[in-house]
Design a protein around this nucleic acid. Sequence first.
RNA 1: GGCGUCGUGGCCAAGUGGUAAGGCAGCAGUCUGCAAAAUUGCUAUGCACCAGUUCGAAUCUGGUCGACGCCUCCA
Length: 462
Amino acid sequence: MKFYNTLHRKKEDFQPLEKGKVTLYTCGPTVYDYAHIGNFRAYIFEDLLRRYLEFSGYDVLQIMNITDIDDKTIRRSIEEKLSLENFTDKYTASFFEDVETLQILPAHHYPRATEFIPQMIETIQQLEDKGFTYTTEDGSVFFKISQFSDYGKLANLNPDQLKSGDRVEDDEYGKEEGRDFALWKGYKAQDGDVGWDSPWGKGRPGWHIECSVMSTHYLSNHFDIHCGGVDNIFPHHENEIAQSCAASGEAFVNYWLHNEHLLVDGQKMSKSMGNFYTLRDLLEKGCSPEALRYTLISTHYRSKLNFTFEKVKAAQKCINRLRELKRRLKKINNEEAEVLSAETESMLSKFSAKLGDDLNISGALGELFIWVNYLFAELDNDKLDCCSANGALSALRKIDSVLGVIECENLEVDDNIQELIIEREKARSDKDWDKADKVRGQLDELGIVIDDTPEGTVWKRK
RNA sequence: GGCGUCGUGGCCAAGUGGUAAGGCAGCAGUCUGCAAAAUUGCUAUGCACCAGUUCGAAUCUGGUCGACGCCUCCA
């Protein structure tokens, strides 16, 4: 199994620190708004990684942070006249709802930044004791990059060439050098009633320290994998490395995995362009959660993903095909023993091998569909015995433990749809084809496709 | 300016030296009350362009063109 490690800009064999176990930290949401599908691309990539590691037999411990204290959460909570806690609780809850909707496996812990203020202060104190910091007049504490010789290794930037000033208008916190970053931000009036006491006065933690403290709290100073979006490589992850290594004196993370961004119609998603989608927006537009999941999962994580509704539609068709296969396989006697045919075993091993090559999902799906095509042909020719069918069903379940798109049929049949189907069945048995077709048209408008099989009518999403 | 990614059929996309996986869309046949689904057949002499290495290149080397990202708090 190998992954592309941003730290060395190449694929590397994956060797966990402890045999059979993986410690995984995945950068989570800043809860100041509903997450958009670009955010979810990251979480779904991380979910695929987690599921594949578990599929491969690893015992994974995953931590995801919830950033509930930063400029945006403070500003927005004040705008909405809510306490920071009430404000962030709302969006944290909506995040968890979305995670569930998308069948993302929950992390084992979701630490919130506000729950770790004492630990952050402690770490900043350590850094201060070791001479990595300086304090400014307003009670802010900065990390002094010039003290950390490895700075820039992850982002492949030369720290001496980091321009100071270009994009940093505010030295409101009074740093010595533009490239230094805040560990602790002294209290300012615009922070409202948000602030904690510290050895440096009232204030709040910087963003980067949060991840350093919470990751090592659960996973120890040195752990296996840290994920996030490419935009986090610099400065966020670079700063995390500096803080963590400086504080502990130990190595921090062995493998850094970063996902590329999602584009909408070839362009960056933005509210002003009107191409900004939250999960809720897309569900309202009639996309199914599993089609969205498939869409987000089926492009390699290090490639840019251009989100289009054509892709969602294609994804839905792929899922329908897998579900249809499952339905047909289930029709064959289910009580007998399971036999993995040579084709099925071959598919499983190739599927796994492709994913083992830096999560080559397209290659893996290619192998899956070769097998799917083969099975449909066997089914059509009545060549599949029940034991092989059971084996195939079992393989399908294994595959879905990684993909998470087949079983999650949250097809609660809406009564209206159910009634229409029954109405059409009756018309058909009366050979009232006009009426049957009319009802089918109505269902079509509801996004439902009818499939008359020898065992009765089956329906699915368009 | 520095660092980095990418360019494969109508669309998406795998393939890192041995002669183009897979999905979607499309066309035709079988099946069906008609559909849908499934199935069968068809759809890239070519992988941005040029030159080179090689018996052989989408894959390696050099160059050209084009798209994009990051360079301080955005997944």
